[in-house]
Design a protein around this nucleic acid. Structure first.
Length: 575
RNA sequence: CGGGGCGUAGCUCAGCCUGGUAGAGCGCUACGUUCGGGACGUAGAAGCCGUGGGUUCAAAUCCCGCCGCCCCGACCA
């Protein structure tokens, strides 16, 4: 492909709209252009790379025995009513009416559609297991699209759904997908970390997210420095901090005036104690009943964990009025002592002594709190967020907090959808059973951007050869120099002959411009031809990821390049 | 949706405070000189100053509304 015939609108300046490196580079390298917030056009180079991701995903899904289908993006609302998810998902769905005034939605995901299909088509254990996948556009009315392709309103996703006869068989399907995901991301040149995750609005029993560790990530995760434990912070078990939080203090409770000091920070500063010495008391409304929640002053309540512990449908911080009624004081002075509502205390607080807590009285806190002595705790349980440097819940190691981009997610769904939508089969005894489901997503477009986020330098993208729009780029430094052109075109024709697609920078530009653009768009192998190299009878070959330029005799160049491509491919082979 | 910022040429931005001829660099077109890491000269094209209203003799500039975009938060497979 001649550069002059391609459409590669590289930019010298960073567009104002882009903040993170991968987003900036996608725009500058001419991969994408924005139509509107959260909506992007893929330009030719971006589309080629995207299709390469798709192809890898397709190959690995096929290899894992999944069957490709394509479901409609446009769906009827009643399907969502039947699964009972219309309520939870309504906010993110684009909705419209057809000409018969039926309410339609653009699919944010496809559990409903596939389960409906399976309900109709599968009726016997003999037809199971099955795993269906598709690569298709999903639509979500995101509250805040951001970071280029990271979070958008329309994006490309691979979603797969497995159906099994029982939990044990479903586990096999789950593991097969987990393994396929490891292969996929490895082939994409990504380093990912699989973390235990919350299942959120998907429902279901267990899940893992595949994270690309990056500062620009939207999710927090913790990872053990010794064992393999890693989890989303939403989910991570908290074994607490290794540092001792309390001191041996057997003095009786004592009131202290804390006039207008409401926040943990203010009180800690005033009393000159570390924030961890305070006990944070929060009043929650749980399905309209108040409960008190106690966590160390330096930790935050994890509402996901809390909701799980309380088996709550609806959980929110209580309003000021309730707080006053329950504690007798306004927000800021609530404390766990002497409350007549259930008190849930974080595990980290067990055995706390010498603590400080709100006095349930305006402008008052209590000193020398001994939680066992002074507070009627209903139960100690894990309800706070894990923090950097917490002890690992699995071993003696220490957890480290990182940011991650979620590129894939695998869920064990159980039978919730199959029961609601009637995806039943007859077992060997002729009994009706619900299929046991799993679902597995990969953000294709997001993965593409995550690769750039992880593989770039100050000059531009560093594509893995598996995703690169072209594996090789040939620069003719001076198109006026007939011999250069001749040498270049002969090489290109040789490469094309063995099935290697080449980007040929034939533009009448100064060499510097071509070098800069080559680095920016990140083609893995660069071959330059100029007067100098022609004089020596060599070609200059450089790997985008390496510094050194290799001078290779023109006659040997083809073999050299073949080996180089092979080597680059080899490095991306899954184990 | 709450908080913050920004909308002026294709891109990056100045001009706005203190109202009076719409600017720079890059990019683009033509010609010439150049030609191994984003060249130089000359001549050009290109802007409803986001949008609607108001104030004023006069608005890119001051005031009000709206729209769009970006960031933080809340929210979210």
């Amino acid at each position: 492909m001649h550069w002059s015939k391609q459409m590669i609108p590289t930019l010298r300046d960073v567009p104002q709209e882009a903040e993170i490196p991968s987003h900036q580079l996608m725009l500058r390298a001419g991969l994408i252009r924005k139509l509107s917030a959260g909506l992007y056009t893929f330009l030719p180079l971006g589309l080629k790379a995207l299709k390469n991701v798709e192809q890898i995903v397709r190959e690995e899904m096929d290899r894992a025995g999944a069957l490709e289908v394509l479901m409609p993006a446009l769906q009827t609302q009643d399907l969502w009513e039947r699964s009972g998810r219309f309520g939870v998902m309504e906010e993110v769905m684009f909705k419209m009416n057809d000409r018969q005034n039926r309410l339609m939605v653009l699919g944010p995901t496809h559990e409903e559609v596939i389960t409906e299909l399976v309900a109709r088509e599968i009726s016997s254990y003999r037809q199971l297991p099955k795993n269906f996948y598709q690569i298709q556009n999903k639509f979500r009315d995101e509250i805040r699209p951001r970071f280029g392709l990271m979070r958008v309103k329309e994006f490309i996703m691979k979603d797969a759904y497995s159906f099994d006869v029982d939990t044990k068989a479903a586990e096999v399907s789950y593991q097969a997908m987990y393994a396929a995901y490891e292969h996929i991301f490895k082939r994409c040149g990504l380093r990912t970390t699989a973390v235990e995750a919350d299942t959120g609005a998907m429902g279901g029993k267990a899940s893992h997210e595949f994270m690309v560790v990056a500062d620009a990530g939207e999710d927090g995760l913790v990872q053990c420095n010794q064992c393999t434990y890693a989890a989303n912070v939403e989910q991570a078990e908290s074994k607490g901090s290794p540092e001792p939080l309390s001191e041996n203090d057997n003095r009786p409770l004592e009131e202290v005036a804390t006039v207008n000091l409401r926040t943990i920070e203010e009180v800690a500063q005033f009393l000159k104690v570390p924030e961890s010495r305070l006990i944070k008391t929060l009043i929650y409304s749980v399905d309209d009943k108040p409960v008190a929640v106690l966590v160390p002053g330096n930790r935050d309540v994890n509402e996901v964990k809390l909701a799980r512990v309380l088996q709550a449908e609806n959980l929110q911080l209580a309003n000021d009025e309730t707080v006053k009624k329950v504690t007798g004081a306004s927000v800021g002075f609530a404390g766990g002592v002497g409350l007549s509502i259930p008190v849930y205390a974080d595990l980290n607080l067990e055995g706390y002594k010498g603590a400080v807590i709100g006095g349930n009285k305006r402008d008052t806190h209590l000193l020398h709190v001994d939680i066992a002595r002074d507070i009627q705790v209903t139960v100690y349980t894990d309800i706070s967020f894990s923090k950097d440097k917490d002890s690992c819940p699995r071993c003696e190691g220490v957890l480290h907090e990182k940011r991650g981009i979620e590129v894939g997610h695998v869920f064990k769904l159980g039978t919730a959808y199959s029961k609601k939508l009637g995806a039943m089969y007859l077992d060997t005894h002729g009994k009706q059973q619900p299929t046991v489901m799993g679902c597995y997503g990969i953000g294709i477009s997001r993965t593409l951007q995550a690769v750039i986020e992880q593989r770039h330098d100050k000059d531009g993208i560093q594509w893995p050869i598996s995703l690169a729009p072209y594996p090789i780029q040939v620069l003719v430094l001076n198109p006026q120099h007939a011999e250069s052109v001749e040498v270049a075109e002969r090489l290109i024709s040789d490469l094309t002959g063995i099935g290697v697609e080449v980007l040929y920078d034939d533009r009448d530009e100064r060499p510097g411009v071509k070098f800069k653009d080559a680095d920016l768009i990140g083609i893995p192998i660069r071959v330059s031809v100029g007067k100098r190299s022609c004089g020596k009878g060599v070609l200059e070959i450089k790997c985008r990821e390496e510094k050194d330029v290799h001078e290779i005799k023109t006659a040997n160049a083809l073999d050299y390049l073949k080996t180089m491509i092979e080597k680059l491919n080899q490095a991306l082979k899954p184990i």
